[in-house]
Amino acid sequence: MIAVNGRDTEWREGLTIRIIMQENKYTSPRIVIKVNGHVVRQEQWESYAVQDGDDVLVLHLIAGG
């Protein structure tokens, strides 16, 4: 089990950030990902292996300033 924005989510072998994004339909490029408090940059999403028990934060950034 992992947490995605505090919500319990099934974990399985081979789970990457990219898969989590696809399965949750997070399509925006305007997203920052933190795993256990550390940023995972966009270019690492494909390869970053999420471990069982990880705490994943998905932060959507909103345009305007």
């Binding site: 490029p29 305007r30 933190k34 940023v39 950034l61 305007g64």
Partner: peptide, 17 residues
């Protein structure tokens, strides 16, 4: 204090790492 969300992502990733 950017306007564009892509720039917000860029500075967050850069500063935090």
């Amino acid at each position: 204090a950017f306007d564009r969300a892509e720039m917000k992502v860029l500075i967050i990733e850069t500063v935090l790492t």
